[in-house]
C-alpha cells in the first residue's frame, strides 16, 4: 500500500473523527491553546508596541525583542516551562505567549513610527488632542502592519503548539508525535497534513480579518509586499 493510500485510509476511518483522540477534539485543543496564547500575547504586546511607537521611545528594545525572540529555541522553551510548571496547559500557554509577543511588539512599533509626521502635524493643527489623534489618525494608518505582526505571531503560535504534544499537550501535534512513537507513519503524516492546513488557514483567515479592519483608502495606498515588517519563524 502506498504512503498516500494509507494516509487517505486514515482520514477515511470514522474512528478518527470522534472521541477524545478524534480530529474535531484535537482541532479544538489546538485552536484553544493557540487562541489563548495569541490573545494573551496581544494583550501584553499591542499596548507596549503601540505606546513605544507613538512616543518613539526605546526603539532598540522594540526592534531587538524580535531578534532575541528568533534566537529562542521553541522546543527548549517548552521543555523548560514543562519542567518548571509540570503537566497541564499552563506551561504550554506561558511558553507560547512568550513566543507570541516579539513579532507583535516590533511590528506595532514600526507601524506607529512609519505614520507620516506631516499627517500627525496636520491632525494636531486640526485640533486633535493626543489620545483622539492616536486612536483616530495614527492607529488606522498603522493597522496593516500591526495586523501583519499579529498574523505572523498567530502562525508561529499555531506551529509551536504542535510541539506541545512533546510535553504531553493536546492538539494536532499528538498525531505526529504518537505516530512516530508507534511507528504508525500514516498517523504521523495525517497529523502533518492537518497541521500544515491549519497554519495556512490561520494565515489566510487573518489576512481576511486584516482586510476587514483596514480602511479602504489606506488599503489602496499599501503595496502588499511592504505589509510585513519582520520575518519571524520559531517552529
Amino acid at each position: 500500500m502506498s504512503v498516500l493510500e494509507s494516509v487517505w485510509n486514515w482520514f477515511g476511518d470514522p474512528a478518527h473523527w470522534h472521541g477524545p483522540d478524534g480530529i474535531p477534539t484535537r482541532l479544538v485543543e489546538h485552536l484553544q491553546l493557540s487562541g489563548e496564547s495569541v490573545l494573551l500575547g496581544a494583550l501584553i504586546a499591542l499596548p507596549l508596541g503601540i505606546a513605544l511607537g507613538h512616543y518613539g521611545r526605546f526603539g532598540n528594545l522594540a526592534i531587538n525583542i524580535s531578534n532575541v525572540g528568533r534566537a529562542l529555541p521553541s522546543f527548549g522553551i517548552l521543555v523548560i516551562a514543562f519542567q518548571v510548571f509540570g503537566l497541564g496547559e499552563l506551561p504550554i500557554i506561558l511558553a507560547l505567549t512568550a513566543l507570541a509577543i516579539p513579532p507583535i511588539v516590533t511590528n506595532s512599533y514600526v507601524a506607529l513610527r512609519e505614520v507620516d509626521p506631516d499627517i500627525k502635524d496636520a491632525a494636531r493643527g486640526m485640533g486633535y488632542r493626543e489620545l483622539p489623534q492616536l486612536l483616530r489618525v495614527e492607529l488606522p494608518l498603522a493597522v496593516p502592519l500591526i495586523m501583519a505582526g499579529v498574523r505572523t505571531s498567530a502562525v508561529q503560535v499555531v506551529a509551536t503548539a504542535t510541539l506541545a504534544a512533546l510535553i504531553a499537550g493536546g492538539g494536532f501535534g499528538r498525531y505526529i508525535v504518537d505516530g512516530f512513537a508507534q511507528l504508525n507513519y500514516s498517523m504521523t503524516i495525517a497529523g502533518a497534513v492537518l497541521v500544515a492546513l491549519l497554519a495556512l488557514a490561520t494565515e489566510l483567515s487573518l489576512s481576511g480579518v486584516e482586510r476587514l479592519l483596514v480602511p479602504r483608502g489606506i488599503r489602496l495606498l499599501m503595496a502588499p509586499s511592504l505589509r510585513r515588517a519582520s520575518t519571524f519563524k520559531v517552529a
Binding site: 502562525v155 506551529a159 505526529i176 512516530f180 504521523t188 503524516i189 497529523g191 494565515e203
Partner: peptide, 18 residues
C-alpha cells in the same frame, strides 16, 4: 511564502517516509 507558513515539524514528518 506558503512553504514558509508550514510548521517545520509537519514538514519533517511529511518527508520521513521519502
Amino acid at each position: 511564502g506558503g512553504f514558509y507558513t508550514i510548521p517545520s515539524l509537519a514538514l519533517f514528518a511529511l518527508l520521513v517516509p521519502f
